[in-house]
């Protein structure tokens, strides 16, 4: 296949117009790699790539590049998440060079949760750049073969240019405010150079469809691959927590009612998730789903199977 930007299998599948599935793997809060290998085992062969979170909710975990490398050894293709909270342009570019050299091919650029949410609320944040500027910086590294300062990516005057050829992603949250700005922000991410987009988990289908319509009206779905986010509810408590406590997520009450009425809450949560995936698949411009089964990776095989997404296609 020609015209590819990286050597990412994930990119190849999207380029071949396959309906892709990505998963999510949260690195451990310790130096224990067995957790990563175990989670990777549930995801391997069931999803096309796996996001490795970067100290999500500002709680210290193993670095996304290290955990991603272990996941890669286990046979899953990682999407390394990088937030703007903890590193400046020097550290991020350095990490991107390292990530590429190790064999990591996909990076998702995020703003990052504020440190007040996590377990080190007294720390200093960085925010040298925002996620859109981060996308641009990675694109310039890949396509212009230059660092943010303008220097060429080479070890010396006569050394070869070896740039990190990364498949670049960004997030989108159709449920945050101001709603009218959300598609503008998507357009800015695309203009900055995003190749793919993963959205916040979709529960409010009506609002998501409206957002997709706005995106289609601007032709954005043809410029970028949009993966809709889904997260299965494990319990009524979790659904309520997502509704009340998580900024930028909207959970309609009828899901809470449906879960409350169900005998087996977890099974009903998975039923809902499977239905959501099927519904999302029908929406024009949705190129795949991003399945964030938070600390529930072991149920991923069942979800993708029941959503009719197995077997996963292989890359030519």
């Amino acid at each position: 296949m020609s015209g590819l930007k990286s050597e990412s299998n994930f990119e190849k599948l999207l380029a071949a117009n396959q309906f892709v599935v990505t998963g999510e793997l949260g690195p451990p809060k310790s130096a224990d790699s067995t957790v990563i290998r175990e989670k990777a085992g549930y995801l391997k062969g069931r999803v096309d790539a796996v996001n490795i979170t970067d100290n999500q909710t500002a709680i210290v975990r193993m670095s996304s590049i290290a955990a991603g490398t272990i996941a890669l050894q286990e046979g899953v293709e990682p999407v390394i998440q990088i937030t703007c909270r903890d590193r400046n342009r020097i550290a991020i570019q350095s990490d991107v060079l390292g990530a590429y050299a190790i064999g990591l091919r996909n990076i998702l650029c995020l703003t990052g949760d504020h440190q007040t949410f996590g377990n080190h609320p007294t720390s200093k944040n960085v925010y040298d750049m925002d996620s859109i500027q981060l996308v641009r910086m990675l694109k310039d590294m890949r396509d212009e073969k230059r660092f943010a300062c303008g220097d060429e990516i080479r070890n010396g005057k006569n050394a070869p240019i070896v740039e990190p050829r990364i498949f670049i992603g960004a997030a989108a949250n159709p449920f945050a405010d101001p709603f009218e700005f959300r598609v503008i922000r998507l357009a800015k991410k695309i203009a900055a150079g995003a190749d793919f987009i993963q959205t916040q988990c979709v529960y409010d289908m009506a609002r998501f469809k409206e957002w997709m319509k706005q995106a289609r009206n601007k032709g954005l779905h043809e410029k970028v691959k949009i993966l809709a986010g889904v997260t299965p509810f494990k319990s009524v408590g979790m659904a309520k927590y997502m509704r009340d406590k998580v900024a930028g997520i909207s959970v309609p009450d009828y899901y809470i009612e449906r879960l409350s009425a169900a005998e087996d809450k977890a099974a009903e949560g998975i039923n809902i998730c499977v239905e959501q995936i099927k519904e999302l698949r029908e929406i024009e411009g949705v190129a795949g789903v991003h399945l964030m089964a938070i600390e529930w990776e072991r149920r991923v095989p069942e979800i993708v199977e029941r959503a009719g997404l197995l077997p996963r296609p292989s890359v030519k």
Binding site: D113, N125, D177, P178, Q200, A247, G248
Partner: peptide
């Protein structure tokens, strides 16, 4: 709260900032 230059993060809701939805207005709103 994050000194963003290209628009609001995903935590902006009802005009308030994710860092303290009771007291901090979202600058981007």
């Amino acid at each position: 709260s994050k000194s963003l230059l290209n628009g609001p993060c995903g935590g902006s809701q009802n005009g308030m900032c994710e860092v303290d939805p009771e007291n901090i207005q979202c600058g981007w709103q």
